[in-house]
Each structure stands twice: as C-alpha cells, then as structure tokens.
C-alpha cells in the first residue's frame, strides 16, 4: 500500500517530474468520463448537449429531484442495498466454512473442487436464464428480491470461495494446531484464533461481493420489473432509444453509482489487500 511520503522527501529530478506528469495525465484521461458525467448531472438539458462542452454554469438540482419524482429512486436503492447486503452475508456464511476446510484440511481433490467451482462461473449466465426464469415463475419468485439474493449468492460463490481460500492459506496452520493442542473446540478455534487472523480476507471478500452484486445487471434486467428492480434496472430504464436527456441520464447514473463508488474509495485499501487471489507471495 502506498507509503505516506512527505513532499520534502522527493528527490526532484527530470525523471520524477515526467513520471508525475505522465501518471496524472493518464489518471485524468481514465477518470474523465466519470467527471464529465458528474458535472453533466448538474446542468440543464440544453447546457448538457452544448458543443463545445460548458464547464462554467450555475448548477441545478432539478435533475435529481426529477429522477426521484418520476421513478422513486429510493425504492430502487433500497432493493440494491437489500440484495447486495443479503447476498454478501449469505455468501460468506456458505463460503467461509468451505474455504476453511479447503485451506486447512486439503485433500487430493481440493484443487479439482476449486477448479470445478470456478468453471461453473464460466458458464454464461444466459445459458441458465430460461431454466431459472421458469423456476422463479413456478415458485412465484419472479420480480422478487429473494430470488435475486439467491441468484447473486450463487453467482459470486465460486469467486468468494477462491478468494477466502487463498487468504486462509496464508495463515500458518501451526497456529490452529497449537490451539487444538490446548484443547480448543472447533467453534473456539474459529472465534478466537481464525477469525482475528482471517478478518481482513473476509472483509475484502465481502466488499468485492457487495460491489459485484450492486452492479449486477443481467439477472436484474431479465427477472425483475417494478417491485424488485435494483439501481441497475433504474438506469437501464433511462436509456430511452431516442432523445438526448443527458442531464437526467447523468443524474440517475450518479445516483446509482455514487453509493458504491464512495464506499469503494473508502474501502479500497482493504479490498485490494484481499484481492490478490494468492498472486502475491
């Protein structure tokens, strides 16, 4: 993680200057689309499509108010929160025990099971769409947050198990064995020894799952309508084929991504630490 370095410590030379400039230029290019969208959300529709783009104007909150008024932003946001948090908790409950047993009691087939789990994730979701649609219909779960929570959980489970497994594997098994020698039960071993050590890995796994569920669009677009729609479907409903409503589109987009992007900014260090999938040794 980036070490805090005071400005006085920089050894200014041409190389550092050009590196800094280049890094900032690239960052600007990559971040620019988001900046542009954020700014557009505060314009009027006329200012939004002005050529050349307007950068100095009196900001308006009108677009945001319109989005709430027309589509009920908070209903969609609430569905997003419920489905992503619900599937994250459910996913951790299933994935942690599995990763624990794979990491600390590996058998000959552990690697194969892990690869098989990942291979289920490679199956295109669209291949399972019709059966899942029919099943949801049969059980009356179409346009229902419960079906979304279950689907999101299954969708993320392989990645979660893999991520947790690679995190758990970095914990020296001797520590757990020592606890067992001292007569700790499985639940004691889990709570007092493993949990503190594995907290970081579990947190970043949960974070990634939260992000993936929040942003999931395929199942939401195909299985929900008015009741269980998440922010992904709210945004899609603003992709009206014709007409340029950039300001409103930007406002709804900002509203849809702001919670998760800000959350991601604050948790990025934690997220990145666990995101290595065993890639860092």
């Amino acid at each position: 993680m980036s070490k805090p370095v005071r400005t006085g410590k920089y050894d200014w030379n041409m190389r550092l200057v050009s590196r800094t400039l280049l890094a900032w230029a690239i960052t600007f290019i990559i971040f620019f689309p988001l900046l542009f969208m954020f700014v557009t959300a505060f314009k009027t529709e006329l200012q939004a499509i002005a050529v050349p783009s307007v950068w100095v104007f009196t900001p308006t909150w009108e677009n945001f108010a319109l989005v709430q008024e027309r589509s009920g932003y908070f209903d969609y946001a609430w569905n997003s929160v419920i489905t992503s948090v619900g599937s994250t908790i459910l996913g951790l409950l299933i994935a942690v025990p599995a990763a624990y047993s794979m990491a600390f009691s590996p058998t000959k087939r552990t690697k194969d099971i892990l690869m098989w789990m990942l291979s289920t994730k490679m199956m295109p979701a669209v291949g399972a769409l019709l059966p899942i649609y029919v099943l949801c219909q049969t059980f009356g779960l179409l346009d229902n947050v419960i079906s979304l929570i279950i689907i999101f959980t299954m969708m993320n489970l392989p990645i979660m198990v893999w991520m947790l497994y690679s995190n758990f594997k970095d914990i020296p098994i001797e520590i757990l064995e020592a606890a067992r020698m001292d007569g700790a039960s499985l639940s004691e071993e889990f709570r007092h020894v493993l949990l503190p050590l594995a907290m970081g890995g579990m947190a970043s796994t949960g974070l990634l799952c939260l992000v993936l569920s929040w942003n999931e669009a395929f199942w939401v677009l195909n299985l929900t309508a008015a009741n269980a729609g998440t922010l992904a479907s709210l945004v899609a409903s603003y992709s009206s084929p014709e007409g340029l409503f950039w300001a409103k589109l930007s406002a709804v987009s900002v509203l849809a991504i702001a919670p998760i992007v800000v959350f991601g900014w604050f948790s990025q260090k934690q997220l990145v630490q666990g995101l290595t999938f065993g890639a860092v040794k």
């Binding site: 988001l34 992000v211 942003n215 922010l231 992709s239 987009s253 991601g264």
Partner: peptide
C-alpha cells in the same frame, strides 16, 4: 483512488455514459 473508480461503475452506467 481515481484510477480504481471505473471498476466500481455498474455496466449499464458504463455503457450509457
């Protein structure tokens, strides 16, 4: 922080943007 941002953006917003 700025560089990581696009990763958090949902595909529908990415596409429309």
């Amino acid at each position: 922080i700025l560089l990581i941002s696009p990763f958090f953006v949902m595909p529908t917003v990415n596409a429309l943007l």
